[in-house]
Simulated scan of single mutants.
Amino acid sequence: MSHVKVEIASQPDCWRLAAEMAGAAGLPERGERVAVAGCGTSWFIAQAYANLRERDGHGETDAFQASEFPAGRGYDRVIAITRSGTTTEILDLLTALDGRVPTTVITADRDAPALPLAGESIVLDFAEELSVVQTRFATSTLALLRAHLGHDIEAVAEDGDAAVRLPLPVHPALAEQITFLGRGWTVGLAQEAALKCREAAGWWAEAYPAMEYRHGPIAIARARRVVWAFGEVPDGLSAEVEATGATFVHSQHNGGYWGAGKDFDPMADLVVAQRVAVLFATSQGLDPDHPRGVTRSVVLP
Rank of each mutant, 00 (worst) to 15 (best):
D265E: 15
L279N: 13
F248V: 07
F64P: 01
T41D: 14
S84K: 03
D111E: 14
A268M: 11
H151I: 05
L124H: 15
F69C: 09
A221L: 10
G293I: 05
G74E: 14
G74P: 07
A243C: 04
P288M: 02
L168K: 10
D98K: 10
G245F: 07
Q177M: 14
A281W: 10
V278F: 08
A175T: 09
D56E: 11
P217Y: 11
L149S: 03
F126W: 00
D161Q: 10
K262I: 05
A190L: 09
L237V: 12
V132I: 14
W43K: 13
Q11I: 05
T95C: 06
H290M: 03
R292V: 06
R224F: 02
V233W: 09
D265H: 15
P169W: 04
R73I: 03
A37V: 15
A112Y: 10
V170D: 05
T282N: 03
P266R: 00
A157S: 13
V233N: 08
L174P: 03
R292N: 05
A210C: 12
G259L: 09
D56N: 06
W185Q: 07
L279E: 15
I178N: 04
R136A: 09
V78N: 04
T104N: 13
E232Q: 11
G150M: 11
A143T: 12
A118D: 02
K196H: 13
A175K: 04
F180L: 12
G231H: 04
Q274W: 13
Q177E: 15
A157E: 12
E240Q: 15
M211V: 07
S238Y: 02
D125M: 02
G293P: 04
P288G: 01
R110Y: 04
G31C: 13
V4P: 00
A193K: 02
P70E: 02
T135Y: 04
P70A: 04
E192W: 09
T282I: 06
V241K: 06
R296T: 07
P167R: 06
N254T: 11
Q274R: 11
F126G: 00
D161N: 12
L117F: 10
S2G: 03
R296Q: 07
S10I: 00
F69N: 08
A246M: 06
L94W: 11
R55L: 15
G184H: 08
T88K: 03
Y208K: 04
Y213W: 15
A223Y: 01
A155D: 05
V101I: 00
Q252P: 06
A71S: 11
D92G: 03
